[in-house]
Simulated assay, not measured.
Amino acid sequence: MPTPEPRTAPGGVIHDIGYQRYEGPRLGRRHIVGALYLHSLRTAFGFGRSAKSKIFPWLIMGTVGVIAVVLTAIRVQTGVMPLRYEQFPETLSILIIFFCAAVAPELVSRDLQNGVLPLYFARPLERSDYASAKLAALVTATFLLLAVPLTVMFAGAAFSADNLSGVWREFGDYLPAVLYAALHAVVFSSVSVLVAALVKRRAVAAAAVVAAFLVTTPVAGVLLVLPYETTAQLSGLVNPASLVSGVGAWLFDPSGEVVGVGDWGPLYGVVSVGLVAACVALLFARYRKVARS
């Protein structure tokens, strides 16, 4: 009877499917932060997301744009500006709040809810880098919401001016208003991102952002009507929106004809800076805690 041949284990085969080692430049942390910022800015306006995500931000932007066009048309036809440049951000402050309430949860709450932060926090991206990129994106989006309509208003006024000195005078009114819009963007965005970073559910986060601005409004109203001049002048300090308005009153209405803050204007400026610094510090602390959890 023939002896059976011993079985041999099947041999392995290595297939070359074309994978190669990456030998290009490694861009590093700065480029990662920049990419995250650009992605977040696109997200703020709904780019790259579903049509549903675009409705509310673009509805607010469209409303602000229509208001700016109507004001420009009135200025061109009558020669009278119904609303001064610096009054534009204050008048639309409620729309700014709703815009931040819609965008901030999309930027930070979604990542918390989906549990993707460990992917972001892989090297070399730092926790503070992530928070800074998200905050910078909302600041930029909010600033564009205000600066673009202001520029439309300035362009209409400049083209209707009689001479170059009139254009220069318009620019002198326009530039401080743009800086004032930047202050709105920084303060409103800092508060909104911090509040949204504390809540995972986007709907709840949006409601919390609105509440952060509106819950102290009655308190400021009560302080304003008290029969004490100092209390009325300091009433704006308790609410983020009225705090920024107080800075505007200090810078654009030092006589106190419209909204009086008395001699407390510098205090409004200091408190505004302190509020932004506190929000940023708490935001960084929040993401250090998330990283450990």
Rank of each mutant, 00 (worst) to 15 (best):
D263F: 14
L243G: 09
I67P: 11
T216G: 04
I60Y: 05
V33A: 10
L224V: 09
G260T: 13
S132W: 09
T63G: 15
L125E: 03
R202A: 13
G24V: 00
R110P: 09
R292S: 14
P266W: 00
S255E: 11
L275F: 08
R127S: 06
L125C: 05
D173A: 13
Q113I: 11
S160L: 09
R21T: 13
G166W: 00
V76I: 10
V33L: 07
V191H: 02
I14T: 15
E5T: 14
A9F: 12
I60C: 07
I94V: 15
R110T: 11
G246Q: 03
G79N: 04
S293Y: 15
S50L: 02
M61Q: 11
G115T: 00
D253S: 08
L146T: 07
L117M: 03
E5H: 12
A9N: 11
T151P: 09
A249G: 08
A155M: 10
P176T: 06
R30V: 15
V280R: 06
A207I: 12
A205L: 00
M81F: 13
I67A: 15
R49D: 12
S245G: 15
T231A: 09
A211M: 09
D162F: 11
A155S: 09
R288V: 12
D263W: 14
Q77D: 14
A131I: 09
F98D: 06
Y180D: 03
L267V: 10
F188G: 07
G265V: 00
L183R: 05
V244A: 07
P105T: 03
V244L: 02
D162M: 12
S190Q: 06
Y19I: 10
A68S: 08
P25D: 13
S192T: 02
N114M: 12
S192D: 00
T142Y: 06
Q77W: 12
L179H: 03
A220E: 06
L223S: 04
P10M: 10
G34V: 09
K200S: 14
L146R: 01
S190N: 03
A207K: 10
G115C: 05
H39A: 15
V64N: 05
R110S: 14
P266R: 04
P105Y: 00
A278P: 02
L150C: 04
S109L: 01
R7K: 15
G79F: 07
V261K: 04
T142G: 07
H39M: 12
A73S: 14
V191E: 02
P6W: 14
L267R: 06
R29N: 04
A136P: 03
G236L: 06
V271C: 02
A35E: 12
S245C: 13
V103P: 00
F188N: 01
Q233D: 05
D253F: 07
G260W: 13
L226H: 08
V167F: 00
V108G: 00
V69E: 07
D129S: 08
F47L: 11
P89I: 05
A277I: 08
V204A: 14
P4G: 05
V261C: 02
T230C: 08
A102W: 10
Y228Q: 13
H39W: 13
A73F: 12
P118N: 01
F188P: 08
R127P: 07
K289C: 11
L146Y: 04
A206V: 02
P6S: 14
P124C: 05
R127Y: 07
G236Y: 00
L144M: 11
A68W: 07
S93A: 15
V139R: 01
R202Y: 06
L71P: 07
T216S: 10
